[in-house]
Design a protein around this nucleic acid. Structure first.
Ligand SMILES: [Zn+2]
Ligand SMILES: [Zn+2]
Ligand SMILES: [Zn+2]
Ligand SMILES: [Zn+2]
Lengths: 171, 171
DNA sequence: TGCGTTATGTTATATAATAACATGTTTGTA
DNA sequence: TACAAACATGTTATTATATAACATAACGCA
């Protein structure tokens, strides 16, 4: 598992037009599916959009409630989990293990790891990829003769913004 | 969060007398509690011993069954979760988020991170600390102005042993 | 011994995820 | 167009993981 060199700037942590952010993500998602021959159905698209609309990682049951609220009929867990599984397989979202929650991938078309900064105050999860770090990871694994299939790095603490403003703890 | 320099050799992956391994861990645990003024009760000791007896991370409910099997009376979830919370607070065990499971800490007396190599074939979880990696982690966080309270690195793949022997997948 | 603190027991419930099977939809092809 | 195979979604039930709230017991010290 290796990562592209990337300037470590958080999209989510800087002011931006999130609607454009979302529609761009949706378009990329359609391209990814088109390339892989997978079907981006309306359910899957709705799930992905809801995830992207949230700046914080979204739990499966929260997502389920949002889907139900938007569609008259009730929505059962398997519906949402199957959509999530699909999006995970396509690399369009990540699962954050320490939160049991899901978040949109900011660079789904490139093969990459699963690395997040998670703020305890505002709840934001910032995906990052950094070549130097990945090299250290790979070296460490190599010293143990360990071959990596997947990785999850979750750094829990306080984001720059919350440190500056004394951001209130998450509801 | 910083880690001591450590020769990357897995205790669990090399042949050893695990009974001595366990009793050493129990003794260290008593010292840690004694220093922090915490009470190492028999329940907590039993839980820690059971965790150490397993070479694989142990789930809370599995642990509950083992406790119940060993003690005539039934054991309820809060009993086990409170013991686990205590052991986590004392730094005597780690929680592996991707497995919802717990494992004994191999060096509880030093402040350190939560870094594991997890083998999909044999289920072993190897704790590691590596200064170069930690430096990269700290640098990455610094570039985002992010302050780290806790970290979890979980590398999932195949251990050296299983690669050599084609180890069977976990039950 | 008595009192405050800490630990454990007990019951109920919350939260997260999956199994198993039925029904609907799409897609390609005869 | 009709049909079949593959794929996606609906539905019901259950399993797995974790916590809330309150009762009782044990401990540690005055
Ligand atoms: Zn990503
Ligand atoms: Zn924040
Ligand atoms: Zn440790
Ligand atoms: Zn292995």
């Amino acid at each position: 598992m290796s990562s592209p060199k990337q300037i470590p700037t958080s999209i989510a942590s800087t002011a931006h037009n999130h609607d454009r952010c979302i529609s761009s993500a949706m378009q990329t998602a359609r391209q990814v599916c088109s390339r892989s021959g997978a079907r981006m159905t309306s359910l899957r698209e709705n799930v992905l959009r809801l995830i992207w609309q949230s700046h914080q990682p979204l739990g499966a049951y929260k997502l389920m409630d949002m889907l139900a609220a938007a569609s008259t009929r009730r929505v059962a867990p398997p519906t949402v989990y199957r959509a999530l599984d699909f999006l995970l397989e396509q690399g369009l979202i990540h699962r954050i293990n320490s939160l049991n929650a899901f978040i949109g991938c900011t660079h789904p078309s490139t093969r990459h790891a699963n690395n997040f900064l998670i703020c305890k105050a505002c709840g934001i999860a910032i995906e990052f990829a950094y070549q130097g770090l990945q090299t250290s990871i790979d070296q460490t694994a190599a010293e143990f003769g360990f071959s990596i299939d997947a990785q999850s790095i979750e750094l829990i603490g306080h984001c720059a913004n919350c440190q500056a403003t004394g951001g209130a703890p998450q509801p």
